[in-house]
Amino acid sequence: MRDRDFDHPEVVLCKDGPMLLRGATSVQDADGTVHPVQRPVVALCRCEKSSRLPWCDGTHKVIPKA
């Protein structure tokens, strides 16, 4: 039997959206601040427009798509 029947990546890049990260216990932002993680999955901002970096806050949806 196969070890894994399904893809379940730790890192998922969402089209026109954030990066999902599974299983992290802390994330260091661009300023060097370390943020503890309490969730099984977090969404990291990739558009740099979030009001709460490093986390996604959905702002990418109001940015015109390239």
Binding site: C14, G17, P18, L20, V41, A43, R52, W55, G58
Partner: peptide, 14 residues
């Protein structure tokens, strides 16, 4: 919910 639902919407849709 700002932070949690930005994750949840990706999980729910896909």
């Amino acid at each position: 919910h700002v932070e949690a639902d930005a994750i949840h919407e990706q999980l729910a849709a896909h």
